[in-house]
Amino acid sequence: MRTSLEGAIARETGTLYAFVERNFRLVKRYLSWEIVFLFYNVINALTIGLIGYQVPAGQRNTTILYLVIGALLWGYLSILFDEVANSISYERWEGTIEYTFMAPIRRLTHLLGTCLYGVTYGIARTLVVLVAVALFFHLSLSHANLWAAVVVLLVSSLSFMGLGLIAAVLPLLSTERGAQATHIIQGVILLISGVYYPVTVLPHWVQWLSWLSPATYSLEMARSALLNDAGLGDLWLSLLKLAIIGVLLIPVGLCIFVVAERWAMRTGRLKRNG
């Protein structure tokens, strides 16, 4: 019994690792593009941070940090969302979708492997941007609670994995339109979540949408931790809410995916040309 359980765990771990390893190998093969994207991410974060120089000197550090937190967290969450949501599109473009879907693996393990890659890849890229931003702006983190910020980042990942899984269904249903729809979803989340401004500046008819976005809570908590030294004791209730959203979104995303997969198998969409 114990041996079969250990064997099952080893098998599932091996499958998880397969997706992480393959995707990092692809990163290596597309290294020049990775450098270009990373360069763009760094420049983007710096230009957004530079907007903070318009405010009086006394508020400058806080404003730059406010903006940079938005750029970094959004950078991370959008990478995670992109990688999970577009994982099916990549398989279609390469023509491997049928082979991946007829492999004897659990869909849960397949998708969690993709999520695990998204988290590690997103953290790696965000760290590079963070180092560049810190060096450029000489930011003071005297009021920052870094550990709390890391916890916020990890808990936020859960809900974005869930959103990514729901969005990954779209390319399964329709190759081109699905990929287009994932970009629209990403754009709406960027607009409503208060990435570079408080959500209170949004028009009233849009503002209520911000409360539906997990990114709104992630950004609020990350800013509290890094600007006001808020610790886990201050943030636990919001963290719990965000964790519950994540824990609900992941199985919901998975269920929708499995239903969509059955639909694709019934209609013949589970192939390279969709």
Binding site: R11, A18, R22, R29, Y30, Y99, A103
Partner: peptide, 26 residues
């Protein structure tokens, strides 16, 4: 299954593609 189109991640080597399959099959 072997299909008419050899479906692989074209930027990866043969061994890298096959290592991926190997892991999926334990």
């Amino acid at each position: 299954r072997v299909s008419v189109e050899a479906s692989f991640f074209k930027k990866l080597s043969a061994l890298e593609n096959l290592m991926f399959t190997g892991r999926l099959y334990g």
